[in-house]
Design a binder for these strands. Sequence first.
DNA 1: GCTATAACGTGATGTTTATCACGGGTGCCC
DNA 2: GGGCACCCGTGATAAACATCACGTTATAGC
Lengths: 266, 266
Amino acid sequence: MLTGWRRNPNRFQFVTKLEGGILPDGTNMRTPYGLEIIENCLSCPHREERLFCNLPEQTVKALSAITSSASYPKGATLFVEGQPARGVFILCSGRVKLSTSSADGKTLILRISEPGEVLGLPATVTGTCYELTADVVEPAQSNFIARNDFLAFLKDNGEAALRVAQQLGETYHAAVAEMRTIGLSHSAGEKLARFLLEWAANYPEEKGQIRLKLTLTHEEIAQMIGSSRETVTRLLADFRRKQLLQVMGSTLIIKNKAALQSIVTG
Amino acid sequence: MLTGWRRNPNRFQFVTKLEGGILPDGTNMRTPYGLEIIENCLSCPHREERLFCNLPEQTVKALSAITSSASYPKGATLFVEGQPARGVFILCSGRVKLSTSSADGKTLILRISEPGEVLGLPATVTGTCYELTADVVEPAQSNFIARNDFLAFLKDNGEAALRVAQQLGETYHAAVAEMRTIGLSHSAGEKLARFLLEWAANYPEEKGQIRLKLTLTHEEIAQMIGSSRETVTRLLADFRRKQLLQVMGSTLIIKNKAALQSIVTG
DNA sequence: GCTATAACGTGATGTTTATCACGGGTGCCC
DNA sequence: GGGCACCCGTGATAAACATCACGTTATAGC
């Protein structure tokens, strides 16, 4: 049984119930499902706004009965691309990087998932393999629902199935947006500008400036826009020189949104 | 009323009931929904193998009651990216190109849809705008279900909603595959090889050769792999010279699959 | 505070490939 | 049959960017 304090590379972490994760040191975290429910989705702070919000009380109860919860340290892997889908992960806190890699080690990051999102949904509903790899980049807590339980639940709860379909639609939408930035750009500068603007869309604009947190390394940004680490470094320096933006640690300020937009327009 | 014989650029076509399409000459084909049902999904040859197969008889009846049918000539547009989603199109015959374009006219083709596929599904279930443009590249017949009808139907038919979720998962899967070919390749040659192999996956292999139909112009191939028309021409010539493949009109024979695979592996 | 490791900055270099330009081929329509 | 539109082939050119290489600056763990 994995319940208890556990040594991780970065910190101690109280692990209540772990499912199918891989620790940074390579240890496999898989345990049998459903042994105990430490936390149910009623206590999740994102319950109201996301996938299974506002469902009938009874439905939520049915859901929480098949849900288990776990904490994952930075560097942990929730699932790996090519693995048969075990179930879905509902991210309660932290952030998770979704990526795919080629044989020669090149990596493409598709998305940094935020709390409230459901990971592994497409593969779980279709019964195929996870198409992406999910790595924890910020210590995360996540609920897990095993595939069989999840499908049975959906079959009995039409409304929930519809919600799932909507969530999938949004996921697809985001993927298409990503394809546009990667596939329709003429230059790396255009891709970077597109990326920054999309990222900034989640932050408020004040006095023509947008303050945003960007806790990604240049390498990771490069992997998001399909470019190399060095060009990202150079382009960011270039943007700074041209007064388009300003960097202070992990916070980035867009000082000239219009100019960035004119870069993507061409 | 649009029922009757209609002049199209390429051929005459009997148009039974048209929904929201745009003809090559720019004419808008929109008509009010639900006036008459010419064809229902029971008669669709793909009924058995796709989205709504094997549903209870009653469910299928409910479905066909909200379905209308139409024929579209080559060059017609089913929907345009950015348009509010009107509903889903179930492709019965023909082929449809799904693409997205940037302001400066560059185009990225995401998929060539085959009969049996459902178009416009993500936007319809999420209630957003179509994220892609759907152009008919081979004369097509398609069923249409308006958004409101479709959502109401899904709410009442949990099993169908689950099927929809699965279809969406597959769509997403295909999109990720596309992203991999575009985003993880080091060269255009690699992208083209990846593209050809994925395309060939739908055809049988015999004696180490794969015979496949590829009714796409070099321009379109370029738009699928995010490259230029000229490089596609040059690369195909190069592949032919190296005995990797052979082209006869619109049929293409892969003579050395292993070599193509070694190109994508690097 | 010290050391190891990761992240960033920057120059030089060479390949890739987009782009422009033009010619030949083919089918379609008047 | 002549014109028109589209598609394919091919050369020349230039720019963008990946890659290599190395130094510098942060960051984290002891």
